[in-house]
Design a protein around this nucleic acid. Sequence first.
DNA 1: GTGAAAGCGCTAACAG
DNA 2: CTGTTAGCGCTTTCAC
Lengths: 333, 333
Amino acid sequence: MRDVAARAGVSLKTVSRAVNGEPNVSAAVQARVAAAVAELGFERNDLARSLRHGRSSATLGLLIEDVTNPFYAAIAHEIEQVAAEKGYLLITSSSQQQEERERELVAALTRRRVDGLLLVLGGGDHGFVAEAARTTPTVFLDRPPVGIAADAVLLDNRGGMHQAIEHLLEQGHRRIAFVSDPGELFTAAERLRGYREALTAAGLEIDDALVRLGRHDLGEAERIVEALLALPAGERPTAIVTGNNRHSVAAARALARVPNPVALVGFDDIELAELLARPLTVVAYDAGALGRHGAELIFSRLGATPAEQPPPREIVVPTRLIARGSGELGPSS
Amino acid sequence: MRDVAARAGVSLKTVSRAVNGEPNVSAAVQARVAAAVAELGFERNDLARSLRHGRSSATLGLLIEDVTNPFYAAIAHEIEQVAAEKGYLLITSSSQQQEERERELVAALTRRRVDGLLLVLGGGDHGFVAEAARTTPTVFLDRPPVGIAADAVLLDNRGGMHQAIEHLLEQGHRRIAFVSDPGELFTAAERLRGYREALTAAGLEIDDALVRLGRHDLGEAERIVEALLALPAGERPTAIVTGNNRHSVAAARALARVPNPVALVGFDDIELAELLARPLTVVAYDAGALGRHGAELIFSRLGATPAEQPPPREIVVPTRLIARGSGELGPSS
DNA sequence: GTGAAAGCGCTAACAG
DNA sequence: CTGTTAGCGCTTTCAC
């Protein structure tokens, strides 16, 4: 920038004004600066800018488990879209479900002075985010904050699971298995609660042998479903509900290998679900909405003065059941 | 940091040393600084650090079309993994296939002084990247640079298409359609070239009516395939090869709606392809490898002195055919 | 309309 | 081992 000033024969500050489109720069000077900028290939250093400017690195930070899961990709994409409209960029980082990585990455994002933090965190206490959340607008996505207060955008986990169970009950199922993540995970716990509530409301006993919670590693999940399917006649479930798209994929694979499949309803939609040999019935929702609302919550805080900051808010994204076939198999088919 | 220094009763520089784990800090002082840091909830400002430090914002910039496409998600994920090992974060931005966005985003990333640029750009001249590439290690992914020299990681597009066509020829197909992106796109052009080469090598004429290039908008792509399937008997293709995963999804959907389907081979693998009603035969490859190699190329330049910089390099990722059923349909089935 | 001085938070290069 | 000085590239403040 100093070089540009020298080249254009003006002061540093004038270049700054010209480059940033501030008022009080004559057309002639504006043009001279523009020419110098072009000749020197100058690009404003936004790091230095935000340092002095005090605020705004014009960057948001997102922490998810893994972008290759379409659920997270949808979230990341929507955040990025909202951010782009405001001239913000997005740093996306993956925890790989490791709490240590979560800590490291929140710290790394904070050190870079992101203007907002969007977090999908695992179980356990989230106290390590408290400090960052004090100075940076922070939104929890998919899972609520634990141990601290902050905005959150969640799914209607229980409601969605009610839809799934009620749908299967209508088909005559009475032995419905639930395959999902470990119960430490908020979403798994809530969906399990929905599962229990719906069964209990129908006057059925909960058979804990049909509740299988394990990491959403595809291989392990497949083995869990295989074990369920290998149960003797009376104990075998006639339907399975999965707790997320990874488990749905695993269950679909395991089911494809047995001669006498059972009904399946997945939580979260899957591309091409309708073209599967056994079209997948799912509890669907707008995953991107988690990101979109989250980004909007961030920007609403960014646009408000400290005095105007509202108390923590919670947004719940609705679910809906899409029947495609796999969930319409009867108990004896 | 100044507050920490005051609190610990040491100089600014000593805090800097302690915080960064530099040598020449006594254990006692180290402890006192650590205590002050904890009490004040201090987090080093990496923006200021990299400003002074001159180099390294410890951030890489990635420009893709859209993270919700699993192809790009795989790339982003691998880059992030490699970056994480070195303590780097990744800014992921989506062009949505708009050249104007590409320009804006490359500029935005450059202004933030990312240490490396990984770009998936559309057709047209890439001159607008030249200035950035001069000062920042830049790698082109999936599509080579046009008009400038830079590292690139590409797929074996022609080879992959040869595999697809040869496979279909072996099944007896002679009328094979090609459905892909517009020819301005390097990958589409190369795959089309592979298609032509393989057919010509087999002594067949190219029927341009069977070559349909259009944006990979799912709806439009479906209509293109429908049109092909609606051709009269003699003109109708007996097999279709798609140019990318979006077109494969579109083709699978369109094919599922007709009573007399044709063979289908997709370029790029799809999750659950084996569980589709008509299991999808594909030309598969390691999409993540594009990202992994790209990130490694960046870091190799980052670790080299200006004098050591090698000339632009090109890495080609191999493809392989996976037969699952849709590509093994005969011409008269 | 334009410029000079000061400083954002940190670290390189020296001193001590 | 620790502190001082200067300055990264930019913007704020205030003067002209």
